[in-house]
């Protein structure tokens, strides 16, 4: 149990609560992710993948059920505490990378540390440079996001997600917007990083080829977990 990073117990999510249009999009999800696990979350569009990812990422609260991050119950936390917990324990990689265009690659990677500590310092730069080196973009440290390719931006986003060395990284279609070659590079990189730092990764994807290369495939259909299996290759 010590190696448990994430636990969902009977998580449901309804929209339009109390109105005639109330719809439940997640129906009693139970899920455990362990340390260092690299899992794929698959399912057709509208199956509730993004909703689940938002709840796991503390960006949204479940209507019912409990969510534990590193053994800590999150249902009792207020907005400020959730924000702090999110910043320190979860790294995000989004489909549209969302680098801050006003900052350089290095500064984008420093951003989670800056938000947590309030002021930049030399240690942050060193850490950020290390991460950029890991994703192979140290030569681009002073480039703006607008001057980089989609694949490069996504690699910066991965470096940024790892800045505070979070136990959990959530990736929402990180390769959805990239050509096959870049997508493969980005995926490889995430696997390497996860293996090296024992980071738990939950990857939402439509790409079955990528899903098969993960340790575990969790399938969501119509808001229910319909299958949860380890991949043969893993």
């Amino acid at each position: 149990m010590v190696d448990e990073v994430l636990r969902l117990e009977g998580v449901t999510k309804s929209y339009g609560l109390g109105t005639p249009a109330e719809t439940e999009v997640l129906h009693g999800i139970d899920l455990v992710l362990e340390k260092g696990e690299f899992s794929a979350l698959i399912g057709p569009s509208g199956s509730g993948k993004s909703t689940l990812l938002n709840i796991v990422g503390l960006l949204d609260r479940p209507t019912r059920g409990k969510l534990y991050i590193s053994g800590r119950d999150t249902s009792t936390l207020d907005e400020a505490a959730l924000t702090q917990l999110r910043g320190r324990t979860i790294g995000f990689v989004f489909q549209y990378h969302y680098l801050l265009s006003a900052f350089t690659a290095l500064e984008n990677v420093m951003m989670p540390m800056l938000l947590a500590n309030g002021r930049p310092d030399e240690q942050m730069r060193v850490t950020a440079r290390d991460l950029l080196e890991k994703v192979g973009l140290l030569p681009f440290q002073n480039s703006r996001a607008t001057n980089m390719s989609g694949g490069q931006q996504q690699r910066v986003a991965i470096a940024r997600a790892l800045a505070l060395n979070p136990p959990l990284v959530l990736a929402d279609e990180p390769t959805g917007n990239l050509d096959t070659q870049s997508a493969d590079n980005v995926f490889q990189l995430m696997k390497q990083v996860s293996a090296a730092s024992k980071t738990t990764v939950l990857l939402v994807t439509h790409n079955m080829d990528l899903a098969r290369r993960c340790d575990r495939i969790i399938e969501l259909v119509d808001g229910r977990l319909v299958s949860d299996r380890a991949t043969p290759a893993a």
């Binding site: 907005e79 924000t83 995000f92 549209y96 969302y98 951003m111 989670p112």
Partner: peptide, 16 residues
């Protein structure tokens, strides 16, 4: 708004 959202997701507080 997207950049504000990403800053919030990365742990940026409302006050910040």
């Amino acid at each position: 708004s997207k950049e504000v959202g990403i800053l919030r997701a990365m742990g940026g507080s409302r006050g910040q």
